[in-house]
Amino acid sequence: MRTVRALSAALLAGAGLLGPVAVPAFADSATPTPSGSAGAAESAGPTEAGTTFRTAAAFRQGQQATAEASAGDYLYWVFPADTGQRPTVTASVTLPESTARHGSSTWRIDVYDGLRRRQPCMYGMQSKTAAKEAPAVELSCTLRPVRPWADTWDEDPLPGSYYVRLTVTGIPEDDLGQPFTARVGAVSAEKGGAYAGDGTLAAPLVPGATTEDAAAGDAPSAVEARAPEDGWSSGWWSDRWVWTAVGGVLGALAGIGGYSLTRGSGRPSRVPPAV
Rank of each mutant, 00 (worst) to 15 (best):
V223F: 14
P145R: 04
Y163N: 00
D113T: 08
V23L: 13
W237I: 03
A215M: 08
F79Y: 10
T83D: 01
I171A: 07
A41Y: 11
G258F: 13
A81L: 11
G264H: 06
A40Q: 10
A254W: 06
P172Y: 13
Y259M: 12
T55R: 02
D156V: 09
W243E: 01
K132A: 14
Y259C: 11
A130V: 00
A10Q: 01
E133V: 12
G217Q: 04
G177L: 05
D213E: 13
A196W: 03
D175A: 00
T90D: 05
G62P: 01
A136G: 10
Y112W: 03
V249S: 10
V146D: 00
A131H: 11
E212T: 14
L250P: 01
A227Y: 11
D230R: 07
D82V: 02
S104I: 06
L201M: 07
C141R: 07
E224L: 15
A219Q: 11
A10S: 01
T211H: 14
G84Y: 01
A252K: 02
A38L: 08
A44D: 14
L75G: 04
V242Q: 13
P46I: 00
T55W: 02
V187K: 04
T211D: 15
T142K: 14
D218H: 11
S233D: 10
V271A: 15
V187N: 08
G19P: 02
F53N: 09
T3G: 15
G251H: 04
P46H: 09
P120Y: 10
T31R: 14
A100V: 05
A186G: 06
D218W: 12
T142M: 15
V242D: 15
L11H: 05
V168P: 02
T66S: 15
